[in-house]
Simulated assay, not measured.
Amino acid sequence: MRFEDQIAQLGDLTRPLIHHELRVLANLEPESLKVFWQIWRDIPAERRGAILRDLDGLAEDNIDLDFRPVLRACLYDRDAEVRVAAINGLWEDESEATMDRLIALIADVSGPVRAAAVVGLAPFAYRGEMGELSAPATQRVYQALLAAATDDAQPLEVRRRAVEGLGYFAASPEAQAEIGHAYAHHELTARESALRAMGRSMLPRWFPIIERELKSPAPALRYEAARAVGELGAEGEPFLPMLLPLIDDEDGEIATTAIWALGQVGSASAKRVLQRLARSKDEARRMAATEALEEIDL
């Protein structure tokens, strides 16, 4: 079957999406990408989004399949949900061209696209702070996140997600000030993002808040506090006495996040707890503990 016909077949709504047929979208060269784009635009938007969402799982199972050319092209798709799916699929893309496109999408007409774009910029912020990005690129992502976080015209979802990315800029007083503003916000979701940013910053100034929120009556804040401890890595060991009760939290997601955090802390005492949990009768906790122990071994 010709390449053009294979793409058109993917858009046939009378047929279910079949994983192995999506392989045709992998490793496209520029000429094939042009052909793809011509046909892609005539496929119904709902189907386009479904295709991109399926690519993520296929790529995880087959590391030789590179869908980035297609996903980068779809950052320009006319449908907002497709653009969001493309952003989400590019979470491992490290190119500065993709970073700059995400920065541009902060001005997108769609709020969900803007929010997805700032979430997509967080890994670039991390790489910048680790010295894995050029100084100009690091400055661009920093300025974009700071502008989004402080722009009252942006929806709260965009502003709070930008604060999460700013957490990596521990040396920036402006970034850390925005974390404080988010934590003081009356909306719970803003405080959730502030806690995530606090963990990413790894600054002792935020430790008392993280400790307090490990005991929060709000499940969302307990979850983010546990996640923050994990972000601290070995620096999170002093929090273990407050973290350990969360492995028995009635909220399973909080419990597994607390177990993940133990693996990130990686101390001898954390490992002993994980070894016990790896024998648990609770399957979710047992699997989480096993994965955390594997992470420590790595």
Rank of each mutant, 00 (worst) to 15 (best):
A107C: 03
P112G: 09
A177H: 09
A177M: 05
E132R: 15
E187T: 02
A149V: 11
D66K: 01
V84T: 08
M130Y: 05
I106E: 01
L121P: 06
Q139E: 14
D79M: 04
L195S: 05
R191P: 09
A149P: 04
A197F: 07
L195G: 04
L105I: 01
E92N: 13
E92R: 14
A184G: 11
D108P: 03
R159K: 07
G167H: 05
A149M: 12
L102W: 03
G120E: 07
A170W: 07
R83Q: 09
P155C: 04
S201G: 09
E157V: 03
S95F: 01
G131R: 04
Q176C: 14
R72S: 03
I179H: 00
Y126S: 11
T189Q: 06
E132Y: 13
A115F: 04
R114A: 08
A153M: 14
V109M: 11
E174A: 15
T150N: 07
A116T: 08
D152T: 14
V82C: 08
Y142V: 12
P123W: 14
A115C: 12
Y183V: 00
E187G: 00
A148T: 08
P173T: 12
H181F: 14
S110R: 06
Y126H: 14
N88T: 06
Q143M: 15
R83W: 04
V113K: 10
R200Y: 11
E96T: 10
E187P: 00
E192V: 07
A137E: 00
V118M: 03
R83I: 05
